[in-house]
């Protein structure tokens, strides 16, 4: 039995969106790997975690629960503090002054 049209539309658009975000994450991952300088890698990391957050949001829409949104919020918080600490390290050579 095939599911109704509405579910098919939403399901396939979510799949397409997840594919696009997956591609975006691989672009960011490639930038992390090739650099060439430390700031490029950190920029890649910043993009990577924002994309990961978006991926979790699409999974959250699919599942219909709040669980994934809290996970997305946690990724946002940790990614932000991580990249800020790394940028600070680039500036001064130490994280906490």
């Amino acid at each position: 039995m095939t599911p109704p049209l509405e579910i098919l539309i939403l399901g396939w658009s979510l799949t397409l969106a997840q594919l696009l975000i997956g591609l975006a994450m691989s672009c960011a991952a490639y930038r992390i790997l090739i650099g060439p300088r430390a700031q490029d890698r950190i920029l890649g990391l910043d993009t990577f975690y924002v994309n990961a957050m978006l991926l979790l949001l699409t999974i959250g829409i699919r599942s219909g629960t709040t669980l994934y949104f809290e996970a997305a919020l946690a990724i946002g918080l940790l990614g932000f503090s991580g990249t800020v600490a790394l940028a600070k390290f680039l500036m001064r050579g130490e994280v906490i002054e």
């Binding site: 599911p3 539309i9 939403l10 969106a17 975000i21 978006l54 699919r62």
Partner: peptide, 27 residues
């Protein structure tokens, strides 16, 4: 692949478009 919450048709199209557009811009 095609499991998703059951919405009315207009909402399914709207949500699908917004999500795909957002993902495309991120890409």
């Amino acid at each position: 692949m095609s499991n998703a919450p059951l919405l009315p048709l207009w909402a399914a199209i709207l949500v699908g478009t917004l999500v795909v557009l957002g993902a495309a811009i991120a890409l």
